[in-house]
């Protein structure tokens, strides 16, 4: 797997507005790569303690750092900044409403390290930037399948080409559900453990139906029929009916499949003529909700039956020697 890297320029293009970022100096360094999703507050580095200093992270300066630098005399200030800036750091972000020290701009320009400021507080910028970087650095994979939001549950249909994934998606859209992506689904793992699926831009909300061609679901059914991304909650594997195979009868044992190291519930659904997959898909989605809310029909039945069997066994045992 190739190492992911984003330039400061890209971050600015994507996030300058929402993170309220402004460029102050070091513009020649905008192509510097960020290869680390974590942020760092340098703090002690200004005192010269740079052992294990994580120089490959974006450095964020808050009130403490700025006030510390302010109270130093001119020479010490330059020296303190140099401890930090002699490393190849990707960029520095100053938070809050501080006036930027002149020497900082000079050094940033000299070393070509981008110096940015934001009017957000340190906790706001840390949260938002971490969230953005987590998404950008998230492990991802492109798979063959169809992702539909059915009653708010993300159902990912997989199965061999031509088994009818697109037809099911179209049928579900007709019934008021929302298409995320057909045929090609990009999955990313969002920490701590959510799998998010979306479609490639080029193919956004197209469905290919054999014999008809490509349909644009958004144009055809309107904006209610689509969704840009959705958490994948259950994988439905469509298979050709095979009498030799064991299919789940009760649903007591849940199967799982793995994407990007995350376990996702799997339902293997055999298809044959006359079976209405769309209605079953809706039932799968609703049953998923019930399980999330703590009700599992199979377990409930199991509990009731076990209680009955125990009761009957107890009564029989009691009467066994009853020959008065």
């Amino acid at each position: 797997m190739s190492e992911i890297s984003i330039s400061i320029k890209e971050i600015l293009q994507d996030q300058a507005r929402s993170l309220k970022l402004r460029e102050l100096a070091g513009s020649n360094g905008l192509n510097r790569p960020v290869k680390q999703k974590d942020l760092h507050r340098p703090g002690l580095a200004f005192t010269g303690f740079t052992e294990s200093f994580p120089h490959d992270r974006i450095q964020i300066l808050g009130d403490t750092e700025i006030l510390y630098l302010r109270q130093l005399d001119k020479d010490s200030r330059r020296k303190a900044l140099n401890y930090l800036l002699h490393f190849e750091i990707p960029c520095i972000i100053i938070t809050g409403k501080h006036r930027v020290l002149k020497v900082m701009k000079e050094l940033a320009d000299e070393k070509n390290i981008p110096l940015l400021s934001t009017s957000l507080s340190i906790s706001e910028i840390s949260f938002l930037l971490t969230n953005y970087l987590n998404t950008r650095f998230a492990p991802s994979v492109r798979i063959h399948g169809t992702l539909v939001d059915v009653y708010g549950t993300g159902l990912l249909f997989i199965g061999r080409a031509g088994i009818g994934k697109s037809e099911i998606a179209l049928d579900l859209v007709e019934r008021g559900h929302r298409l995320v992506a057909d045929d090609v689904v990009d999955l990313i793992c969002k920490p701590p453990g959510v799998l998010i699926g979306s479609g490639p831009d080029m193919l956004k909300h197209l469905i290919e139906i054999r014999g008809v061609g490509v349909l644009n679901v958004c144009n055809m059914f309107g904006v209610r029929a689509i969704r840009l991304q959705k958490r994948v909650e259950t994988v439905v594997e469509l298979t050709d009916w095979d009498g030799e195979q064991d299919y789940e009868r009760l649903g007591l044992d849940e199967q799982h499949t793995e994407y990007l190291g995350m376990n996702i519930p799997l339902i293997r659904l055999p298809i044959y003529p006359g079976k209405i997959i769309t209605v079953i898909a809706e039932a799968i989605a609703l049953n998923h909700h019930l399980k999330v809310y703590g009700f599992n029909a199979a377990q409930d039945l199991n509990r009731k039956l076990n209680a009955r069997l125990r009761d009957k066994t107890r009564i029989v045992d009691y009467l066994k020697w009853d020959d008065e």
Binding site: D246, L250, L305, L309, R310
Partner: peptide, 15 residues
């Protein structure tokens, strides 16, 4: 022990 509860029933039906 418990008679034909869910799991034995599953095995029986499978065969």
């Amino acid at each position: 022990e418990l008679g034909i509860h869910a799991r034995p029933a599953t095995k029986l039906v499978r065969i």
